[in-house]
Design a protein around this nucleic acid. Structure first.
Length: 237
DNA sequence: CCGAGGATTATCT
DNA sequence: GATAATCCTCGGA
């Protein structure tokens, strides 16, 4: 067991990291490393390349718009916990609770670049894929999208309210991402939220990174708020 | 490459 | 009863 112990493990991000403004946390989580210890002891790691901020009961795209309920309760809790929920009846979404306790807010972890445990991730996702081409697609976009990411990291409802400082899931500091590498856009899948929450640019991503969700903006943001490349125009709200 | 349509169920109205 | 912080497959260019 000494063979894989050559490097010291970075300390997980402290609770104070998450206790700040949600937008700051979303921005600064880019470049950080999501880590997961599976029941059998295997470690998975991926560099976070895409996030979204959901802040307060006034944010009509945030689940807290419905107030404090059994489901949204974790959003109001201490920062630095995981908020995991199901959407579309079948997909798990991983969030990091942010802002001081009592203020409902979270950062959706939308995509990661695999660093460690790739084989397991591809397997976890390929298991559902029937065809060969589906398997290949699974390995190309292992964690490129919020539901793909939870599949790749073996995350489900059991991790709701888990402490993001370990031992089963945690986030480590990473190589910082410069401002010039950070793009912003409207949050994905929020087109039915009341204005301005449908278009407010609270999504953050590493510009040009291949592991950002396909079919979503991943180019630089222009002054007009439009993107120059890697985008799909979605008109008609 | 792109767009259309289906899957599938917890949660809230 | 309607909706949803999504993804996959399939058909066409």
């Amino acid at each position: 067991m000494a063979q894989s112990r050559s490097q010291a493990q970075p300390e997980p991000l402290p609770r104070s990291f998450y206790a700040r403004a949600c937008l700051t946390v979303a921005r600064e989580l880019l470049g950080c490393v999501l880590a997961r210890r599976l029941p059998d002891g295997m470690i998975l790691r991926g560099r976070i390349v895409e996030t979204e901020a959901y802040v307060g009961e006034e944010d009509k795209a945030c689940h807290a718009r419905a107030g404090r309920t059994a489901r949204t309760d974790p959003l109001y809790g201490p920062p630095g916990l995981a908020y995991v929920y199901i959407t579309y009846g079948m997909h798990y979404m991983l969030n990091a609770v942010a802002e001081p306790e009592g203020r409902p807010a979270a950062v959706l972890i939308r995509a990661a670049e695999p660093l460690e445990g790739m084989e397991w991730m591809v397997d976890a996702r390929g298991a559902k894929a029937k065809t060969v081409s589906a398997r290949e697609a699974a390995s190309r976009h292992v964690a490129a999208g919020p539901a793909r990411l939870t599949q790749a990291f073996g995350i489900d409802l059991r991790l709701n309210r888990a402490d993001l400082r370990g031992p089963t899931i945690w986030i480590e500091p990473g190589e910082p991402v410069r401002d010039t590498e950070v793009g912003t856009s409207a949050r994905i899948g929020c087109q039915t939220a009341a204005p301005p929450w449908d278009l407010i640019p609270w999504r953050f991503y590493v510009i040009g990174n291949v592991h950002v969700t396909p079919g979503t903006p991943r180019g630089p943001t222009t002054k007009a708020g439009k993107t120059r490349s890697g985008t799909k125009q979605r008109a008609r709200p």
